[in-house]
Amino acid sequence: MWLTKRWGAILLALTLLFSITACSSGKGGTAAGGNEDQQPDNPVPIVDVSLGLEPQAIVAEYEGGSLTAEQFESYLRVQVFINPQYGLAIQQNDPQALTYLIERYVAEETLANRADQSESVDEQVQHQINQLKSEYLTVYNGDEKRLKKQMKDQDVTDQQLEQFYRQYFLASNHLGSKVTDEDMQRKYEATKQEDKDSFVVASVRHILIAVGEPPTGLADGEKPRSDEEARKLAEEITERLRNGEDFAELAKEYTDDPGSKETGGLYEDVYVTEWVPEFKKAAAELPLDTISDPIKAEYGYHILRVEKRTEHTVDQLQGIARARFVGEIIDQKYLEFVNQDLKEILKEENIHLPKQDEK
């Protein structure tokens, strides 16, 4: 949804920031050394969000309330913890970025206030906080002390995260309650026009012969495969399958895909759009129960057999696919709200930000 899209990208943002801070240091940042032992406790820059205003100074007035510098700075600290990529723009006091975040704050608060306040969002809030912390811990190699230090240095608390996410989920769920069957059908048809295979579900059995080092790693004494070696082995296995050998048994013996090794190469009832383009195309088009030629993709050569394939109607969408689909409609409704209603709730002349040289 309009906020959750960015949460899934936090690892990329943190990686990019780590690369930047490894090369230089400056106000609000840290420099990383050349090896893990030399890395600082906080490889992710700590951002100065101070606006240079008195705490009770009004930075925005809007229908139903006002936003003080103190409140906005608290919101900015949470934002840069969740979205490190915002840090540079905020630290440089970029008016466009700050205006955008004021609009977001007001939009979320307004929509949350319109939501059914009796609705419990505790489970959603805790799930999102756990996911966020898990992504940080991945960057910090599971070191919880470094995560706690990051939060302390950025002056972000669990209570602030809970408040932020509670407001978001109330706002999001309110917009979700406005999604109609007509909205779903229009989105379904538009999505199919963009990609005719958007709602195709297939059960595919496959064997991956990796090029280079396989995802499962190399055994003692084993060397990475060259492209030619991988292709030759894939062709040999393809021939054996076409001669009637058992696909599941060969998959358990040869596949380099850890996600399907124990199931004999089977991925069952998966939307084909979840796969890389080459795999997706074969899963959507290969005749049923036919052994494919080896297909080259990112990790090596795939040999496929499609065992079942169907297309879901809008009413049959399920799981992650349905959540993503509804989330995209909620995004649309959020943008409609921002582009229409918010302009009346928060007028441009009622935003009072300091000039860049005032910070």
Rank of each mutant, 00 (worst) to 15 (best):
residue 165 Y to Q: 13
residue 78 V to W: 14
residue 41 D to F: 10
residue 195 D to L: 09
residue 213 E to P: 03
residue 189 E to I: 12
residue 89 A to K: 04
residue 184 M to T: 13
residue 313 T to C: 00
residue 106 V to P: 05
residue 81 F to C: 07
residue 293 D to N: 12
residue 6 R to E: 13
residue 46 I to F: 03
residue 298 E to C: 09
residue 314 V to Y: 13
residue 66 S to D: 04
residue 272 V to A: 15
residue 310 T to H: 05
residue 340 Q to L: 15
residue 284 A to M: 06
residue 286 L to S: 01
residue 126 Q to S: 13
residue 276 V to I: 12
residue 113 N to C: 02
residue 35 N to Y: 10
residue 315 D to G: 06
residue 82 I to H: 11
residue 255 T to L: 12
residue 69 A to K: 07
residue 198 S to D: 03
residue 20 I to G: 15
residue 28 G to I: 08
residue 297 A to Y: 05
residue 346 L to N: 10
residue 236 E to N: 07
residue 159 Q to W: 05
residue 212 G to E: 02
residue 319 G to K: 07
residue 222 E to G: 10
residue 52 G to C: 14
residue 241 L to V: 07
residue 325 F to H: 01
residue 313 T to F: 01
residue 102 I to R: 11
residue 191 T to Q: 15
residue 200 V to L: 03
residue 345 I to F: 02
residue 181 D to Q: 11
residue 73 E to T: 03
residue 322 R to M: 08
residue 76 L to I: 11
residue 164 F to M: 05
residue 102 I to G: 06
residue 138 T to Q: 09
residue 293 D to R: 04
residue 324 R to A: 04
residue 53 L to W: 08
residue 290 T to K: 06
residue 254 Y to V: 08
residue 282 A to D: 06
residue 87 G to S: 02
residue 66 S to P: 08
residue 185 Q to Y: 12
residue 106 V to Q: 15
residue 25 S to I: 09
residue 208 L to I: 11
residue 229 E to R: 15
residue 279 F to D: 06
residue 88 L to F: 15
residue 55 P to W: 01
residue 205 R to L: 01
residue 292 S to F: 02
residue 57 A to Q: 14
residue 206 H to G: 03
residue 347 K to Q: 12
residue 45 P to W: 10
residue 61 E to N: 05
residue 76 L to T: 12
residue 267 Y to D: 13
residue 22 A to N: 07
residue 63 E to H: 09
residue 283 A to M: 02
residue 132 L to K: 06
residue 358 E to S: 13
residue 121 V to M: 15
residue 54 E to C: 04
residue 25 S to G: 13
residue 138 T to G: 10
residue 51 L to C: 08
residue 202 A to G: 00
residue 208 L to W: 11
residue 197 D to Y: 13
residue 279 F to C: 09
residue 331 D to C: 11
residue 117 Q to C: 01
residue 80 V to I: 09
residue 114 R to T: 02
residue 177 S to M: 03
residue 114 R to K: 12
residue 301 Y to Q: 03
residue 6 R to K: 09
residue 283 A to W: 01
residue 144 E to M: 06
residue 207 I to N: 07
residue 252 K to Q: 03
residue 195 D to E: 14
residue 316 Q to N: 05
residue 118 S to D: 06
residue 221 G to C: 07
residue 141 N to W: 15
residue 251 A to L: 06
residue 345 I to L: 05
residue 97 A to T: 15
residue 218 L to S: 12
residue 184 M to C: 04
residue 163 Q to S: 15
residue 217 G to C: 00
residue 112 A to K: 03
residue 279 F to A: 03
residue 86 Y to P: 00
residue 163 Q to D: 12
residue 263 T to A: 04
residue 268 E to P: 13
residue 55 P to S: 13
residue 140 Y to I: 00
residue 170 L to V: 05
residue 146 R to E: 11
residue 83 N to H: 15
